[in-house]
């Protein structure tokens, strides 16, 4: 009886969603006025960016994105400071059993493919769906695969923090350069290029590459810290 009710409810919900969306033609404007017209015109005409979401996130609301990156950094720092309570004891991983040779051999070939996909996602952030955050997370999953497959795989925390710092400095520095060469913080000062090219969109690709490296380094650090936390050291 419960299952039938659930199925009926889901069917009703699906019917409602389907009827709602069939009313809107594909690609037709369904909101008459608003700020989106300005955004849509500006992204294609003056900024030459194919992906409107990226243009809004990085260019029109770039300061907000800088804040989001800072929030992520603070969260990672807080997590690290909690888990690193007994720093000298950290380093032993609680592994139930080591991975089989199929997994270790397979992850060797999968790891570069995952890194390539992540780099593709954040380099083409202004052309295709995706961007710095998504690409960084994909790269971090590649490191997670290696950490799960190899018992002794280690990531240098010094290199991670250097990469993270350089990426953060690049983001803030581009913002300051916009203040110097333009009028406001994070203003576009580079040539916008041709629409649908990799080298287009002014500062957007550079910022997204920096964000990608930063997110990848931070999340890899989080994964490494969690995996190397000693199970029994609760304070």
């Amino acid at each position: 009886m419960k299952k039938i009710l659930i199925i009926l409810l889901l069917a009703g919900l699906g019917f409602y969603i389907a009827t709602t969306y069939t009313g809107i033609g594909f690609g037709e404007p369904h909101f008459k006025h608003g700020v989106k017209d300005t955004y849509l015109k500006q992204t294609v005409q003056s900024l030459h960016v194919a992906n409107t979401v990226t243009a809004i996130v990085v260019n029109f609301r770039g300061f907000d994105t800088l804040g989001e990156v800072t929030v992520l950094f603070l969260a990672v720092t807080a997590l690290g400071s909690i888990l690193y309570k007994k720093r000298h004891e950290v380093g032993v991983r609680s592994v139930l059993f080591s991975s089989s040779s199929i997994v270790t051999a397979g992850s060797k070939l999968l790891f570069p493919a995952i890194i390539l996909l992540g780099a593709y996602v954040f380099i083409h952030g202004h052309l295709t769906p995706g961007g710095g955050f998504q690409g960084g997370v994909i790269i971090a999953t590649g490191f997670l695969l290696m950490l799960l497959a190899y018992r002794n795989y280690s990531v240098s925390h010094i290199i991670l923090s250097i990469v993270e710092s350089i990426a953060g400095i690049t983001f803030a520095g581009i913002g300051l350069l916009g203040l110097i060469y333009g009028e406001t913080f994070l203003q576009n000062f580079l040539p916008v290029g041709v629409l649908n090219n990799v080298f287009s969109g002014g500062i957007i690709p550079i910022i997204y590459i920096a964000v990608g490296f930063k997110v990848a380094a931070e999340l890899t650090g989080v994964i490494y810290t969690i995996l190397h936390e000693k199970g029994e050291s609760n304070g």
Partner: peptide, 19 residues
């Protein structure tokens, strides 16, 4: 890619379950 990654992941799942 699917032919490569899918057997590895299902092998890892089955092995972890067995262990």
């Amino acid at each position: 890619f699917i032919a490569y990654s899918n057997p590895i992941s299902s092998h890892a799942l089955a092995r972890a379950n067995y262990k």
